[in-house]
């Protein structure tokens, strides 16, 4: 089957069975390998992308469902200058270790900050609650999101 997807601001046409996971189409058909597969069952958030601005797990969306929605992946977020402070804050705070969870963490953080520019700690914990990290213990990730929020909101 042929599907037309709206990904990172571009329309792309892909050949895939309707039951192919968006995750596999992104990684294998489109070479967008920033989106990771951890559990493949909605528990870890490594595969998180935005669909019409909402955080979703690409392992639980099929290509036939994704058609007609605007999809943004970590590559799309990384290309936007407004999110630069978010990446910087993760690095500065030492919130990255092996890095496997990071694309998903950043996608979750960006979705949160768009809705709540200056989130409280509890809101950050809630916003990242679907993302697992086996390395950092979360503390530094929370600090990074707080710092990024401050900077983005104050425009510095």
């Amino acid at each position: 089957m042929s599907y037309t997807l709206h990904i990172n601001g571009q329309l792309v046409s892909v050949q895939a069975p309707g039951t192919a996971r968006l995750l596999d189409v992104l990684r294998e058909e489109l070479g967008l390998t920033g989106t990771k597969e951890g559990c493949g069952e909605g528990e870890c958030g490594a595969c998180a992308v935005h669909m019409d601005g909402q955080l979703v797990n690409a392992c639980l969306v099929l290509v036939c469902q994704a058609e007609g929605h605007e999809i943004t992946t970590i590559e799309g977020v990384a290309a936007q200058a407004r999110w630069r402070p978010l990446f910087d804050a993760f690095v500065e705070c030492g919130a990255v270790q092996c890095g496997f969870c990071m694309p998903g963490m950043v996608m979750a953080a960006a979705a949160l900050l768009r809705e709540r520019p200056r989130p409280s700690e509890a809101e950050i914990v809630r916003g990242l609650s679907g993302n697992l990290c086996r390395c950092t213990g979360y503390r530094k990730i929370i600090t990074a999101v707080q710092r990024a929020g401050e900077r983005i909101a104050s425009g510095s």
């Binding site: 069975p17 192919a20 469902q65």
Partner: peptide, 11 residues
């Protein structure tokens, strides 16, 4: 990849 040749309908 799972069920790579499955059929899906979108009525």
């Amino acid at each position: 990849m799972n069920a790579s040749n499955g059929v899906a309908f979108t009525p």
